[in-house]
Design a binder for these strands. Structure first.
Lengths: 396, 396
DNA sequence: CCGTATTTGTTGCGCTTGACCGCATATCGA
DNA sequence: TCGATATGCGGTCAAGCGCAACAAATACGG
């Protein structure tokens, strides 16, 4: 109740937390010397040595010969996450299921995109995952240790049990996909919302590294999702549904900017309206971005007006978020990144015009950095969570 | 950098944290038996006894004879926050400065409201505080230990150094009021935004007790402010300006509902427009509430329409917050509470109509519980923060 | 090529602290 | 009055981290 962390307040708790801190550093910061770990954690040299040794015995990290560092003094061994520890990341989508084996540190060891004709069911997703793991185990990843499976699902996921409450495009409703995957693979599985996991990935490994308060918005084919980081932690909310910016209703200053009566953000700001303005039927992300660039370069007034309109409305939604959350960073992904890249200062200026000046002082608006690996890395993080939180939990 | 808490990860850290946990329990839960502390913390009986003894020696808690508990077994001594430990809470406002001496546990030992004719300056505020402390020290609180001063300021407060960036109604701009108070009183001082501190108080002692994810909105004379609690912690944002709901621009579905062109939430939803609909010039909070009740009971259509209009717009703003933060509780204070109490289910229904159904499942909308003491308790919490975080920091 | 300064790993020791155990004590019910 | 239950208290134990001394590995200067 008050006690957050099992055995906090006891020696065991200290030990576990210190192990977790070192493993976390190896995971997030990449390979780093024991000396650097000592500096970053404030622990004693001897303590770091002993903890690192314990992590080595657990098979979670390995020590390499020191990097040649042109500095005086005895060189310090480099501690790195063990390459044999991998998580399975899964992203079921309308047209395909993407799977990846992701190592600690965010290294992607294998990646597959399995196209599907019909909508994939939760049961079939589980089978595809089990099948991929079997193939990987017979191939390059024969000696890998699979820590678990993380699923990034485009829909609402209940945090308590990983139940997919509703994924409109997949037509999943109250789908216990976590249990299906655990049964099919024998591995622990976790489920999260795709945009929230994207936010997590950008926070840990992308444009939001080291930023403790950020807002992430992603424009996908199916709408606008997002995620928050507050106090350096991803925000799930009470049930795990936090971050649904697409369902917000921002103010629309000019009535002629409104397209959908009583509509929400993703009715007004969306790929479909951009495609329409371009006269295209459909396009994937890079194609759309190229088409927009060409049209703007050619001086097409229709696309310029539509871009401006969407930017204005997006800016109001972002200003609302800035006022409430006072982040230091706003990250835009998907077609929202395209919207922003087209005129990098325009978005920030439009937000600044509507948000409190003080809150805007330290806000940067940037484009997401991780590209298509984002969801795989976020999903893997979910699968690694238990291990990173308590490395001893995997001890045999 | 990684290490949040000074000496976390060492024995000293464990000891300090355990002391802080017990003091925190006595502070937040009120007097409680050693047995209950043992149960709540998971610490060993002997450990609790030793830690409690240490806190007694520090003069922070005291032990009383056991409460008569009609149960078998040896009765357990009751641990309570020491009544002699107090914080000074200050709330400078346009017409008056309110001061209070608040004990651990939220008990208010003294309270003064000093009316001012002209706007109070930061310098004068500091003198008023020092003066009040002097009087208290000569009176009932002769033996009290003043832990510090907490100021709840109606304006933007920079978290890093407590600088009041801008308090429009007080006409303070970049006011180093914290330093003024520290110089005048010789006590450590902290400054926070009034609405954020109200949210903190409601979270710790009011309608939001035990709730880890909540949104608080307060309607004051000067506008709408608010605060958030995420992961059980108050949200300040990067610079401390978080919670400014009043500056948001929610969608307004019916154009005829709009009153201010290009206005923000507090231009549309405000006391002034309620007073106008009632034909009143000014009124304090209870008077306004009474007037609204009477008018509604009398079937006044103008006030009913205005209440409905404000509720609709407020509901959109709340729905936006619910979608993004997925709280389990929304707390309304000030005239927003009046707005809600008038028709308790109407607000929730209006929010539910515009927020995601799943996110609304577990949301309760309630009225603030603490009344006029809210800001004093929140400000005192600020002053107690250091002590509660590390009880040993006050050791001589 | 060698000595010195610098940095870091290693080792053993000691301190701190919470868990555990046994016994004394306090209350209630029979 | 006695047994059952639950707690307090003191002592002992075990575990983990810091510390200090020593050893090892590197750069630099002569």
């Amino acid at each position: 109740m008050i006690d957050r962390n099992g055995s906090t307040g006891s020696f065991d708790g200290v030990h576990r937390r210190n192990l977790a801190r070192i493993l976390g550093l190896a995971h997030l910061e990449g390979p780093l010397s024991r000396a650097r770990i000592t500096a970053l954690t404030g622990l004693n040299r001897s303590t770091v040595a002993s903890l690192a040794g314990e992590l080595i015995e657990l098979g979670l990290v390995e020590e390499r010969a020191p990097d040649p560092t042109n500095r005086v003094g005895r060189p310090s061994p480099v501690v790195a996450a063990h390459p044999g520890v991998v998580a399975v990341a899964v992203n079921p989508e309308v047209d395909a299921v993407t799977l990846a084996a992701v190592g600690l540190g965010g290294r992607i060891d294998a990646r597959e995109r399995i196209e599907v004709d019909d909508l994939v069911t939760p049961e079939r997703t589980a089978l595809l995952v089990a099948d991929a793991i079997r193939r990987w185990r017979e191939g390059d990843l024969a000696h890998a240790r699979f820590a678990g499976v993380g699923l990034a699902v485009p829909g609402l996921v209940r945090a308590a049990d990983g139940l997919v409450r509703f994924a409109p495009h997949l037509e999943w409703r109250d789908a216990p996909v976590r249990e299906f995957v655990e049964e099919a693979t024998g591995l622990p599985a976790s489920v999260g919302n795709d945009a929230s996991l994207g936010a997590l990935a950008e926070h840990l490994f992308g444009a939001g590294r080291g930023v403790d308060d950020l807002v992430y918005l992603n424009g996908g084919a199916s709408g606008i999702g997002g995620g928050l980081v507050v106090h350096g932690r991803a925000v799930g909310g009470h049930s795990g549904y936090a971050g649904e910016f697409g369902q917000n209703r921002p103010g629309i200053a000019a009535p002629e900017d409104r397209r959908a009566d009583g509509g929400v953000l993703e009715d007004e700001v969306g790929r479909a309206r951009l495609l329409e303005a371009l006269g295209l039927r459909s396009a994937d992300e890079p194609t759309l971005a190229d088409a927009i660039r060409s049209a703007v370069d050619a001086g097409d007034p229709a696309i310029a007006a539509e871009l401006d309109r969407q930017r204005r409305i997006l800016a109001t939604a972002l200003a609302n978020a800035v006022n409430v959350l006072n982040p230091s960073l706003v990250i835009l992904g998907g077609f929202l990144a395209t919207l922003a890249e087209q005129d990098p200062d325009a978005i920030r200026a439009a937000v600044a015009a509507q948000a409190m000046p003080a809150a805007m002082e330290d806000v940067e608006v940037v484009v997401a950095a991780l590209g298509e690996d984002r969801l795989m890395i976020g999903a893997a993080e979910l699968a690694f969570a238990r291990l990173l939180d308590d490395p001893l939990s995997v001890a045999g």
